[in-house]
Amino acid sequence: MMEFYPQIKAVHVYCVLLSVALFSLRGLAMIAGQRWPRANPVRWLSWSIDTTLLTAALMLAAILPGALFANHWLTVKLVFLVVYVVLGHRCLSASTSKRTRPLWFIAALACYGFMYSVARSHHPAGIFWSLLA
């Protein structure tokens, strides 16, 4: 299955970009008071992208050698993924107040940015490691 690594990684990366783009669009629309981000077709699209993203991630984890994850960067990325999902859910929730929604949105995007830096650097400190190194 290693021969499919480049294609699987490309699907994973494109889904990451699609997922955060759709979240950003939905979050900004919710901040602006729009109702369409909570419509079922938009939510289904989000779930479809995220399911494909998770499937590609699991396939990558299955085919890569275990030594690649010895420095725990993947563990940090997965912990921040859970935090990102919780923050994103709070941002898009109908029960969130208009006053706090932008804070949840910014926090979720900051979490995504850190996850991205961890994934790119393959280091648990992410961008902070590259700034200090």
Rank of each mutant, 00 (worst) to 15 (best):
F4Y: 14
L87N: 03
R90E: 08
A125W: 14
V79L: 14
A56H: 05
D50C: 06
A107C: 07
R101A: 03
A39L: 09
V82I: 14
K77M: 09
P65S: 14
C111I: 00
A57K: 01
Y112M: 12
S46I: 01
N71A: 07
A29F: 04
W36R: 03
A56P: 03
M1D: 12
C91P: 00
M59L: 15
M2Q: 15
A94P: 01
V82Y: 02
S117I: 04
V11T: 09
P65L: 10
V86P: 02
K77C: 06
A61F: 14
A119M: 05
H123W: 12
S46L: 06
W36L: 02
I49V: 15
S48Y: 03
S19M: 09
F114G: 00
H12W: 10
P37H: 07
A94H: 06
S24F: 12
H72N: 15
L109N: 05
F4A: 13
A67I: 13
I8K: 00
L60S: 08
T96K: 03
Q7D: 06
W129G: 12
G33T: 04
S93D: 02
G66R: 11
A21K: 07
F114I: 02
R90T: 01
I8E: 02
L22V: 10
W73N: 08
H122D: 05
G27M: 08
R120G: 13
M2F: 15
L53V: 05
Q7M: 12
L22F: 08
V85T: 10
A70T: 10
I31Y: 01
L53T: 04
I127Q: 07
R90K: 13
V86S: 07
I31T: 01
A21C: 11
G66H: 04
F23C: 10
A32K: 13
L54N: 05
P65D: 15
P41M: 11
S97L: 05
E3G: 08
L81C: 09
R90S: 06
C91W: 00
A70G: 14
L18I: 09
F128Y: 14
H89S: 15
Y116C: 07
G33R: 03
G66Q: 10
R101D: 00
L22Y: 02
A119H: 04
K77I: 02
Y14V: 15
F114H: 08
A94Q: 13
R38E: 12
Q7F: 11
G88I: 05
A61S: 12
V86C: 11
H122P: 00
Y84D: 09
P6F: 07
G66F: 03
I31C: 08
R38H: 11
A29N: 02
V13D: 04
A61R: 08
A39D: 09
A125M: 15
